[in-house]
Write a protein that binds this DNA or RNA. Structure first.
Length: 800
DNA sequence: CCATTACACATTTTT
DNA sequence: TGTGTAATGG
């Protein structure tokens, strides 16, 4: 019996497809990694393909690591010669070899988001751009999208002609790019962008890799952006031994799991694969090995509402399993309490079968984790939050890395400026600005101008401090190059000599100081491990680049027994026996940003895919929940349950709710998530829709909304205890639902062409009124503030 | 130059 | 709510 016998027919067909383009549409949990790894084994063992000729590209280090391990396990020989790595790491390796052809130095550094932001701030300052009207964040997105679309600064400028804002963007982009190059740095997008540029302009570099990689596999193909798409297309264009062009390209993905449009992912890359390669074979993997029938039916029911997707439906031979539960709680607080106590209860009841790491709490935004954290701490349940605070983004780590970058070359001015006054050396902003000006005029790098302090006007007393800083860096530099000290020992030396550790000890409270020291220790360990394991000669640049390309989820290992909390985005690719998908409310999930977007249909579809991803993470049980009231940024918000809940057929859901008497509810239906203390000033004074009961079977039949009074605690009944998951209290009836009809919006009192008064912007002309789901979106031209789009519910416009 | 305070501001984020 | 940046005064 061969290893291929364990595959189902579709999987097997995919594995045995050895030549030409192949698209594998792999639904969630359909065993795509298995297919990829078995296909690698098959090519090597049955088709005599050299392991050196195989390239497997992933998005995350975690995925790359997993694939690497599994390839090593099933491929009998030469497994380590298969190139398995992320897009970015691969491109860094390509660029280390050839980037000099593009005028960069081969020991370039990689800028992470923080560095990018710092650089962008400098650019704005230099170009006199008011960061109040044009935020760095926006500018970074502009530059990032431009690069994702392979638009050079010059092209961008050309396209921007005649448009003032775009012309500004073009100036920023050009200056930003210029500075990156001066600093010999690439940002994340550059890594792909520059590789494509390399392959387009340097045929030798391209054909070198085309000849090398004859079989290319791409995981999560639905998440590729235009630049990555082109990169793949260029590489997968090799010639075989008969001089024929062949496209041995195998892409795996699921259009339903495309959730990174906001980062430039282009879903058409997967949808149009067959157009690009008319001879492509297409194989659908629809059998799911992860979840129960109930969970998959729920997932299918939701995703069915998206248009323009590849037709497919997941099924499983697993049993029906327990029903999917939806509970609406009184507040986010009670939601968290119930979920945490449910986890504790399950663990207590089934200590032999359930452990903490079987449970995942998933949410839309990182901010939602806080309540859970509180409850988990209170109960003493071990947990891990995967999230925005990446190890390598911590201040102390970034400081140490900045020191290393400075020692490594000093071309990266952002790094030098970061640590020139850390710990405090009495070198302030004015001094830095003066050096900057001098450096720009003299055409040298920031660090190099530190050697010429005598010539810099206005430096005065700071000169001595600057030279002692330079002396420190130089001594570390020589220790590294001539004495052959290890990287890790250099770090120890610099921490000691700069007094960095002392500063932490003095200025932080005991706990944070201890945390920081521990982090630094861990960094030293990682450095030492890197030096030991490096394939070739370990270099500082390589370590730094590697480190810049690490995400938080990458460090999620199964070895610690913790409940895991993370955003839906981070959860992609993972699975858990028990999943809690919380915050299922309109305005939270789908987020208000998508509901109020210019193109809500499109954005809601992306949110729906996110929902699909969340649902399909669950193996055995899935609990959906919402809160009637939620504290968001210190304000109470009242949201109706998510529209995605409506999309799940009633018979699949076990609905549990909070008890509340209908008569206590005020009549106003809020147009949008409400504001603390807001007066229910004239919205939807309908009051004529009779409440109907949840148990009456009408749940999910159409539009409805929960009315709300403003402030929590005013016209609102005292919070009642939430029904516990799994243990419905029969004394508490299902909560009543009232129907809501969007046509019942209150008349606005003004319309297009009217002049209105706004609290902040003054008077303006209404140019457009669009009726959204529960509110009007008003476009107003203000002579003072420009054109603004706002929701009638928030704007409080008055006709004049 | 640096500490303090006032103020504005908030999606998601594989790399 | 709580964080991170801009203005202020010592």
């Amino acid at each position: 019996m061969s290893i291929y016998d364990t595959l189902n027919p579709e999987q097997r067909r995919a594995v045995e497809h050895d030549r030409g383009p192949l698209l594998i549409l792999a639904g969630a949990g359909s065993g795509k990694t298995r297919v990829l790894t078995h296909r690698i084994a098959y090519l090597i063992e049955e088709r005599n393909v050299s392991p050196f000729q195989i390239l497997a590209l992933t998005f995350t280090n975690k995925a790359a690591r997993e694939m690497r391990e599994r390839v090593d396990k099933i491929v009998s020989y030469g497994a380590q010669n298969v190139w398995v790595s992320t897009f970015h790491s691969s491109c860094v390796r390509f660029l280390r070899r050839f980037i000099h052809l593009l005028g960069y130095d081969r020991n370039f550094t990689v800028y992470d988001t923080d560095d990018q932001k710092t650089l962008m701030r400098e650019v704005c300052k230099y170009l006199n751009i008011d960061t109040k009207t044009m935020k760095e964040r926006t500018l970074m997105n502009v530059v990032s999208s431009a690069k994702d679309e392979l638009t050079s600064p010059e092209e961008y400028a050309k396209n921007a002609e005649g448009d003032y804002t775009k012309t500004q963007y073009a100036r920023v982009y050009a200056e930003y790019q210029k500075r990156l190059k001066t600093n010999n740095a690439l940002d994340f997008d550059d890594i792909i962008f520059k590789t494509v540029e390399l392959f387009r302009t340097q045929p030798e570099a391209l054909s070198y890799y085309q000849r090398r990689f004859r079989y290319i596999m791409v995981d999560e193909y639905q998440d590729t952006n235009t630049a990555q798409f082109l990169l793949i297309s260029l590489l997968a264009n090799s010639e075989n031994e008969y001089g024929e062009t062949e496209h041995n390209l195998c892409v795996v993905g699921d259009d339903d799991q495309s959730i990174y449009k906001f980062r430039g992912a282009n879903i058409h890359n997967i949808l149009d694969f067959e157009k690009q390669y008319p001879d492509a074979a297409v194989i659908k993997l629809e059998q799911n090995y992860r979840s129960t029938t109930n969970i998959l039916d729920t997932a299918n029911a939701v995703i069915r509402n998206n248009l323009g997707r590849k037709d497919k439906e997941l099924w499983t031979a697993n049993g029906k399993g327990s029903p999917v539960v939806f509970t609406q709680f009184e507040s986010d607080y009670e939601e968290a309490e119930a979920i945490v106590s449910d986890i504790a209860g399950t663990i207590q009841e089934e200590p032999d079968t359930a452990s903490y790491h079987d449970f995942a709490i998933l949410y839309r935004t990182n901010a939602q984790s806080r309540v859970f954290e509180e409850k988990l701490i209170f109960r003493g349940i071990p947990y891990k939050i995967i999230g925005s605070i990446n190890f390598y983004q911590r201040k102390e780590i970034k400081d140490v890395l900045a020191y290393l970058k400075t020692i490594d070359g000093g071309a990266d001015s952002i790094a030098v400026k970061r640590i020139i006054n850390v710990p405090k050396r009495g070198i302030g902003q004015t001094t830095i600005d003066r050096i900057d000006t001098y450096a720009a005029e003299a055409g040298m790098s920031f660090y190099d101008s530190l050697h010429h302090t005598g010539e810099i006007p206005g430096i005065g007393r700071a000169a001595a401090k600057l030279s002692s800083f330079v002396a420190l860096i130089e001594s570390l530099k020589s220790r590294l190059s001539s004495c052959g000290s290890s990287l890790s020992s250099i770090v120890e030396t610099l921490l000691d000599e700069t007094g960095y550790l002392d500063e932490i000890r003095e200025n932080e409270d005991d706990q944070t100081a201890a945390d920081r020291m521990a982090n630094i220790d861990e960094l030293i360990n990682k450095l030492a491990a890197y030096e030991e394991n490096a394939e070739e000669a370990p270099t500082l640049s390589d370590f730094l680049a590697e480190v810049a390309l690490v995400a938080d989820v990458d460090n999620l290992t199964g070895d610690s027994d913790c409940v895991v909390l993370m955003t839906l985005h981070s959860a992609k690719g993972l699975e858990f026996p028990h999943v809690y998908l919380c915050g299922m409310e309109d305005g939270v999930f789908p987020g208000y940003m998508s509901i109020n977007a210019e193109n809500p249909e499109l954005e809601i579809e992306e949110e729906r895919r996110l929902c699909y991803v969340g649902i399909t993470r669950a193996m055995k049980t899935l609990r959906l929940s919402a809160a009637h009231m939620r504290m968001v940024r210190g304000e109470a918000q009242y949201n109706r349950p998510s529209r995605f809940i409506d999309e799940i057929p009633r018979h699949l859901l076990n609905i549990r709710g909070i008890n509340r008497s209908a008569s206590l509810l005020p009549d106003d239906a809020f147009p949008q998530s409400s504001i603390r203390g807001a007066k229910p000033s004239g919205y939807g004074q309908s009051g004529k829709n009779p409440p109907y009961s949840l148990s009456g079977g009408s749940y999910g039949a159409g539009n409805y909304s929960y009315p709300s009074s403003g402030k929590y605690g005013t016209g609102f009944p005292r919070p009642l205890s939430a029904t516990e998951f799994d243990r419905p209290d029969p004394t508490k009836a299902a909560r009543p639902i009232r129907q809501f009809d969007s046509k019942n919006l209150a008349p606005l009192g003004y319309g297009i062409g009217d002049t209105v008064q706004h609290v902040k912007f003054g008077t303006g002309l209404v140019t457009n009124v669009v009726q959204g789901g529960r509110d009007y979106e008003i476009t107003v031209d203000f002579p003072s503030a420009g054109t603004k789009k706002m929701l009638a519910g928030f704007a409080k416009l008055k006709k004049i």
